[in-house]
């Protein structure tokens, strides 16, 4: 078995071309997992589009990863993604449901179509992935009582409201409840389901964030986040990757249905 905490394991990470998903995929690969890097396109988005695709970074570091293009809003593409991942070893050990996109949606400006589209991207996609992945996982042999581990990325904004974040907040609160529900329904089958609620994480996909990372220059939103965060810095994708690794690893044995906040103490404060 390859060295590392996830040696010999197959992990699907959705939305893994950029941001949190990219950091999670890279960390899992460093820990020996074969990582299925799933996204709409292999290249990072936004201001990081000039950087290497996640699979190439993993490849150069000696890790194991394949890119599988999938729109996780589409059931048949979710099916194909899980089938492709399972084909590698006959098992699907870990799924990280990270694909999603933040955007504002003040109520009076939000059309029915936007509501449906946002919920499809940020909540229904995780339902589809959980359903298909758990259907596979319950057919697998248990390893130390566990057949599979799922990590759903929720958000601080699913636990507290931010101005105008209507659809995103509702979807992410839904992710937290989906996590609790599936944890209960499949615990006896050895499926462990947890969530991570990131706070303000600086991914550098937006211009202002990239500026902050490069020079420390802050815009108003960043200054507000810093004032609300007990920690002297804002979050990094690696902070979330470390938490995902814990919840995906053999160290996570008796924890299920938990929504782990990675927010520098924002909500505690």
């Amino acid at each position: 078995m390859p060295a590392g905490r996830l040696g010999g394991r197959t992990a699907v990470v959705t939305g893994a071309a950029s941001g949190l998903g990219r950091a999670i995929a890279m960390r899992f690969a460093r820990e020996g997992a074969t990582v299925i890097v799933s996204d709409l396109q292999p290249e990072p988005i936004g201001t990081r589009a000039d950087e290497l695709p996640t699979v190439d970074v993993i490849d150069r570091a000696g890790g194991s990863a394949v890119f599988v293009r999938a729109d996780v809003r589409q059931p048949e593409q979710v099916d194909a993604l899980v089938t492709r991942a399972t084909a590698i070893t006959g098992r699907l050990d870990i799924v990280v449901n990270n694909a999603g996109l933040f955007g504002l949606s003040p109520l009076l400006e939000t059309t029915e179509e936007k509501w449906d589209a946002d919920l499809a991207l940020n909540l229904r996609s995780q339902f589809l992935m959980c359903k298909r992945a758990i259907a596979q996982m319950i057919t697998q042999d248990a390893v130390d009582e566990v057949r599979g581990r799922i990590v759903n990325i929720s958000s601080q904004l699913g636990m507290t409201a931010a101005p105008g974040a209507t659809t995103y907040g509702v979807a992410k609160a839904g992710v937290a409840q989906l996590t609790r529900q599936l944890a209960v329904d499949f615990a006896a089958d050895g499926i462990i389901v947890n969530a991570i609620a990131p706070g303000r994480i600086i991914t550098g996909t937006q211009a202002a964030e990239r500026e902050y990372l490069a020079t420390g220059a802050t815009d108003e939103a960043t200054r507000f986040s810093l004032s609300r965060t007990p920690f002297p810095r804002l979050g990094r994708p690696e902070d979330v990757a470390g938490a995902a690794l814990f919840l995906a690893s053999d160290d996570c044995t008796f924890i299920s249905g938990h929504n782990l906040m990675v927010d520098g103490g924002w909500l505690a404060y």
């Binding site: 944890a183 902070d239 470390g242 782990l260 927010d263």
Partner: peptide, 26 residues
């Protein structure tokens, strides 16, 4: 759980009470 929370990997996790209970509180 203490190993995770005691590690360098958790520098952005603070103020939390993590339930480890086999899902009983759910």
């Amino acid at each position: 759980g203490f190993l995770f929370l005691g590690s360098e990997d958790t520098s952005f996790i603070t103020g939390q009470t993590m339930i480890i209970d086999g899902g009983r509180m759910l």
